[in-house]
Amino acid sequence: MTVVDTILVPLKRVVDANVRVRVKPDGSGMALDGVKMSINPFDEIALEEALRIRERGETGEVVVVSIGTQVWTQQLRAGLAMGADRAILVETDQELEPLTVARTLMALVEREHSELVILGKQAIDGDNNQTGQMLAAIWGRPQACFTSHLRFSDRVATAMREVDAGLEVIEVDLPAVVTTDLRLNEPRYTKLPDILKAKKKPLQTLSLAELNVDPEVQFRVLGIEPPPQRPSGVKVSDVAELVQALRQKGVV
């Protein structure tokens, strides 16, 4: 039984999780030239969850959306190859703060009449962990953040959330925003025929102006620096030496 007609899944293009990124020597930013880019892993989990909801017959379509330059269509195409029905790129060359991203998503929710947005709890570049919560606030709807299990019954979603004290279960009325944690699911691998099929799926391009979103910048970046390095340590050869070293450091 259909719970919602359309699920929106925002995909952020980020440096691949396996790449060790460094600050540029002049501190002007991160050294990202030629680095492998991927869908933010948490967003990939969000897309997988949306696809499973569709496979259970609980939604009619899954729409992936990105807010970035034309090159972000690589990640949208990857999302279509995974199984999304169509894609929307909101084209901008500005780096947007999470509040602006949330406002853009709000405009897309209205445009697409979506009643469920599933997105990653954080992007592994900015590490902000804000966008889903902000979207829910602007929308005036519930948020189920850091979700590791999600089920629907009529117009109510039951979410299990990974919290510091363990697993918290909440119920939220739809429409709602869900942000994903790592253990919600394991995203599927894309097969070659799906990549070919994805090329024929619709991909629409919009602008921030068309959505009436003002990309205001609130926080001024004054500098980027590498973190302080820990001095290198010692290797011990057995447990007795380890105990000795721990005593010398005064920690046991």
Partner: peptide
Amino acid sequence: RPFYAGNAILTVEAP
């Protein structure tokens, strides 16, 4: 604040 999994530290000014 840290970002990029703590591989960089950002200094920001709020209005």
